[in-house]
Design a protein around this nucleic acid. Structure first.
Lengths: 128, 128
DNA sequence: ATAAATCATTCGAGTAACTCGAAGTCAACC
DNA sequence: GGTTGACTTCGAGTTACTCGAATGATTTAT
């Protein structure tokens, strides 16, 4: 299948139909066309836009920043340098976020261990 | 220094004074006392609460879920098992998030490469 | 063929988690 | 003693959803 409705895309990507329509209304999906009943149709091409937008959003870029990037993409070759800088900057942010996430995971792992020893002791104490 | 005002904590942890007060108003910091002018005072003990709350929040736990966990902590030993399950579950979520983040980083790295080759070509083309 | 179910649409209201600023209190410095 | 600065509360504003109502077309069931 090379075409998707909003619902099908929602199922495929695991994001709500509301969010998809919201993003489209904000102009984040430039290549989305409509059928003769005004229903949105996502092709393989628009799908790659959607994936890019989700990647940017999930690495913390705001809607308006994404919108700016999308606009640059549509303006053609003259904006390549700025787009490159945006991606570079976003990658840097994502790398930092990843490190932070690893620290948080360690905190949780430490907490998990703490509760495990606590529970292990309790089992012994509770024995008759 | 073993005591902090809201501003000092804000500077130390890099979160806004508004957010700190907001979290405190929501009851996420049980050990925060006030001086005789009603100013909040964070001790080393309350600081460890703050760090835990930030860890949970930054791994995607909602305010109300954090509040529930904090309440359990204050109820004593009988809640250890439920607390353990919560932490375990949160750790699992964080691990999945980390994997997703790594994928996103790869997407951005790929995009970066794409722009680099594009820019390298452009330099040659633009030469007189 | 008409009714029901299922999918789509728009639009406006509601929510979570901040984010900001106004208005007021207190203390310390010049 | 007036300004500066950090604290307070409180209410309004913002972002990014999130939901539901009202409406319309398509498919299936009787």
């Amino acid at each position: 299948m090379s075409q998707y409705t909003v619902k099908q895309l929602s199922d495929k990507l695991g994001i709500s139909v509301h969010t998809i329509r919201f993003y489209d209304d904000q102009g984040l999906f430039p290549e989305v066309s409509r059928d003769h009943y005004k229903n949105r149709i996502f092709t393989e091409e628009s799908l790659s836009w959607v994936n890019l937008v989700l990647c940017l959003r999930n690495t913390g870029m705001s809607i308006s920043e994404i919108k700016h990037y999308i606009n640059l993409c549509q303006e053609g070759d003259s904006t390549v340098h700025e787009r490159y800088q945006i991606i570079l900057n976003q990658k840097k942010k994502a790398e930092e976020d990843l490190k932070e996430m690893q620290k948080r995971l360690e905190v949780l792992a430490h907490k998990e261990k703490y509760y495990e020893t606590l529970l292990a002791e309790r089992v012994i104490i509770d024995m008759p």
